[in-house]
Simulated scan of single mutants.
Amino acid sequence: MLKIHVINTKTVGGLDAKINALDPSSTGDKIIGEINTPAGWRYAQWDEAGTCRDATDSANLDKTDPKLADVFIMI
């Protein structure tokens, strides 16, 4: 797992999200971070398509966000 400088972004549903690690060798979820839900910040993992594990589609990452371009290249 690679720790990275925190990347603040939004999910496709408008939730605040932070990405703080990448795991390019993982066969599943490669992006690690947190999502700010109505219940507070929670741990989150996304696969290489930006789909959040065990969450609704609103928690998926927006792959068109320019801040995430390098993340998707690295994984």
Rank of each mutant, 00 (worst) to 15 (best):
30 K>S: 09
17 A>L: 05
21 A>H: 02
27 T>E: 06
42 R>S: 14
49 A>K: 14
6 V>N: 10
13 G>D: 02
51 T>R: 13
49 A>R: 11
18 K>Y: 00
22 L>E: 01
36 N>M: 12
51 T>N: 13
25 S>T: 04
40 G>L: 14
28 G>I: 01
56 T>W: 07
21 A>M: 04
13 G>W: 03
62 D>K: 15
52 C>M: 03
49 A>M: 11
44 A>S: 11
57 D>F: 08
61 L>A: 11
5 H>I: 05
41 W>Y: 10
36 N>D: 10
19 I>C: 04
45 Q>Y: 08
46 W>C: 09
35 I>G: 08
57 D>W: 06
61 L>D: 04
40 G>W: 10
3 K>T: 10
42 R>D: 07
35 I>F: 08
24 P>L: 04
52 C>R: 03
28 G>T: 12
44 A>C: 05
20 N>D: 09
40 G>E: 07
4 I>D: 03
48 E>G: 12
40 G>P: 05
8 N>I: 02
40 G>D: 08
3 K>A: 09
15 L>S: 11
27 T>D: 07
2 L>G: 00
23 D>E: 09
15 L>W: 12
19 I>W: 01
31 I>G: 02
45 Q>W: 03
42 R>P: 00
20 N>F: 09
30 K>N: 06
13 G>N: 05
37 T>W: 12
17 A>R: 05
58 S>G: 08
43 Y>A: 11
48 E>D: 14
25 S>N: 02
53 R>I: 07
18 K>C: 01
